[in-house]
Design a protein around this nucleic acid. Structure first.
Lengths: 99, 99
DNA sequence: ATAGTTATATTGGATAACCAATATAAAAAT
DNA sequence: ATTTTTATATTGGTTATCCAATATAACTAT
């Protein structure tokens, strides 16, 4: 446990979430992550994640390299959201906490 | 990346958050985590986390083994909350997603 | 077409996160 | 007091997560 802020492990979940809102290329996803995290993920971070999600059949990639969720990916994301929201059911208080 | 649902990395953050609401013993913290995650963390998970947080000066332990945040811990938690909330600024949509 | 730039992808490795197994200590019950 | 149960703690090791470095491919501009 190096730094709580890093929240290791959220990344692939977040990538699914980001793609669910809009089909995006790797570069676009990286930019979106930069907005959220403050730092852009290294290519060695983002592309292996995309590859794994693809290998697991959760996302597909069209001719323009834009990634989108498969049906399986949508299902998986719903489950993850469900888990996430249960885990952080009191996140509203967290928003208040840092104000 | 085994399973997004595991959200590896959230644990120490969550422990800080839980303690911030109420001073608790290791056993109580475990129960609270079980409520959120579905499974109780193994002793080999929770106690090393508590030890590390203690070693980092973020929590202290009173005579009854109840853990509480130090000033440093409160500061750290605020930062983590801030980061977390920026990362998941659109978490409201996630709540909708799994309904 | 060629050079320069940007995007995509792979590899290898470091380390953080976690758990199972075990040990010890404390509390409760008989 | 002794047994049983529960809580706390440690150790050792596995795996996931992530990044730096590098390579390749695909655009853009001249």
């Amino acid at each position: 446990m190096k730094c709580n802020c890093e929240l290791k492990g959220y990344l692939s979940y977040l990538v699914l979430w980001i793609i669910s809102k809009k089909n995006m290329t790797g570069a676009e996803i990286s930019k979106e992550l930069e907005k959220r995290r403050g730092t852009k993920p290294s290519p060695g971070t983002i592309y292996p994640v995309l590859k794994e999600l693809k290998d697991k059949g959760l996302i597909t990639c069209d001719g323009n390299k834009a990634y989108s969720l498969t049906y399986k990916g949508k299902t998986e994301l719903k489950q993850s959201c469900s888990f996430f929201c249960k885990m952080f059911y009191d996140i509203k208080d967290m928003f208040d906490c840092c104000k």
